[in-house]
Nucleic acid binder design. Sequence first.
DNA 1: TGTTAGAATTTTATCGTTACAATTCAAAGT
DNA 2: ACTTTGAATTGTAACGATAAAATTCTAACA
Lengths: 333, 333
Amino acid sequence: MATIYEVSKLAGVSLATVSRVINKNSRVSDKTRQKVQDAMTELGYRPNSIAQSLASNRSNSVGILVSELHGPFFGQMMAGIEAELRAAGKHVIITTGHSEEDKEKDGIEFLISRNCDAIILHVEAVTDAYLIDLCKGKMPVYFMSRLVEGLNENCISLDNELGGYLATQSVLEQGHSAIAYIAGPQFKADSKDRLAGHKRALAENDIAFSDTLYFEGDFKETGGSDGLKCFIDSNQQFSALICANDEMASGAITYAREQGLSLPKDLSIIGFDNIIFARHTYPKLTTIDNPVNLMGHMAAKLVLKNIYKQKNMSIIHSFEPTLITRDSVINKN
Amino acid sequence: MATIYEVSKLAGVSLATVSRVINKNSRVSDKTRQKVQDAMTELGYRPNSIAQSLASNRSNSVGILVSELHGPFFGQMMAGIEAELRAAGKHVIITTGHSEEDKEKDGIEFLISRNCDAIILHVEAVTDAYLIDLCKGKMPVYFMSRLVEGLNENCISLDNELGGYLATQSVLEQGHSAIAYIAGPQFKADSKDRLAGHKRALAENDIAFSDTLYFEGDFKETGGSDGLKCFIDSNQQFSALICANDEMASGAITYAREQGLSLPKDLSIIGFDNIIFARHTYPKLTTIDNPVNLMGHMAAKLVLKNIYKQKNMSIIHSFEPTLITRDSVINKN
DNA sequence: TGTTAGAATTTTATCGTTACAATTCAAAGT
DNA sequence: ACTTTGAATTGTAACGATAAAATTCTAACA
């Protein structure tokens, strides 16, 4: 592969001039630029990005840490980030944390060692203290879907508490009062906030939160089925079930039907996230929209603005969930 | 950040010795190694991967091109690849092709310019000729889920023809004879092969393939609903519907129910891929398992073996789909 | 004690760029 | 014609590691 040196020789100019032609920023006379460009195409020259990175101390890559590579939620998130960054000629290095503290830290270390220009984290297991500490380091760090105290400027987050509130409120408005709740893992901030919103809605309507109608799931399909099984086995009475994400809701739906329940007549179910599949459950899942793709775009824009100094980037740090009404909640009024 | 130079100074040894301690391969006396390691921890030294890459002409990164970052199919694929590679200390640079020729080529260019050590491609729009040409270049190229003629050694593929055959055969065995088929985009090799398998099964059972019971979908939910709508609107009679992937099957299920059909009594539906969600449709989707996660692992192993010279890697190039029987196909016998 | 092989270590060149200071050049002003 | 000035260009030193050749050390053997 041809190097900048050969290009400069063929074009009869210095290395530096070639470099400036490549990087478009500084001025070069049209005649010289043309000569250089001709030489480049003649040699099939392609800049060596590694050497560029070493010399410029910039890798043009952004590290991303997600919990899982599969799953509709992370898929949408990554798609948003990648689309935005790719359009700007940056690339993404993606790795996973599996919601485990060690693996998350490991993933972060890995991305740092890879000389990313910035990293975007969707971490769940690691503490705020660790993150605050991390931000004191040299690597710029941004957070997706998590609000770290004092680091608001680096966060793109969803008002999960509001989402939880909305879900419960909407179910209450449909006349339900005995409401079961399957939460996500409570070490995850999202889960905790959604639950808090649920409790607030309950409180505002003078309904007591019942421990026996609460189950902590795993955000996976099994969480939904296990939770519902638990409620049913203990002979609880309830007409509605709120699941802290759509996967659990769909697990619950599947299990409910296995138990011979007719949905939504016998049980109303509402989810959270509005993953693509939510409109293909039966009944179609009423849920809370989580604009995670948009948030991915925004996180990328934040990096583009702060790190790559792109102009005209207006950033929204906080997003609001909205209710998506479909068929899985019945009106009891 | 401390450099190798400072470490060597503090440890009182040369640059090269430090380098050899880092890279574990060549021998260094225990005493020296200890000195160096102490110096490294004292300085909080972390090798600069960019500099390593420039000097060694190896980036320890593998480029991945998938059609989409979201979607259960690609999610599983990426998860497999990443898990395997990450365990070996390599990282993945992921980009997308969106099943469009230009974007795929662009993505490939992008990965090449990023100095990956190898690239793993899941391309659909680009021609075999282009790929054969690409393989003549310097960059090692591997293919996921696509068999490129003459490049078998570089491919990890699924016998899609067999999968298509299996799907149709199983439906036939359940006593169905009027069978509709919603294919994937026919420019994609997978889709074509699955259809070919379908036709073979039909032929073996002396059933004519009917153009009016064929629809070319888009591999998305809409493909399933559009296809089924088309068949129903044209007043076709059929008791079973084969969809070339699960997304389309779930779109078809949703649409069928919207039309008041009772499933699987009025219509049997079978999918392809066995995405996680397939067990949460109603009725639970009978489908063809596509071990794409495993194939991802295998593609990564292939790279590990060929590029990074890891031993003990036994490679399986060709995978076989299997029938997963659930509830969406009724027995008419 | 002197050799010598082999291990351990150092020296030096190199990878392909960018960045910065230094230089040259061309047009305008006096 | 002689400065001046700002744009265009060049030379050279990094960037932080690896790799190959050269050297030094160590211990065993004659």
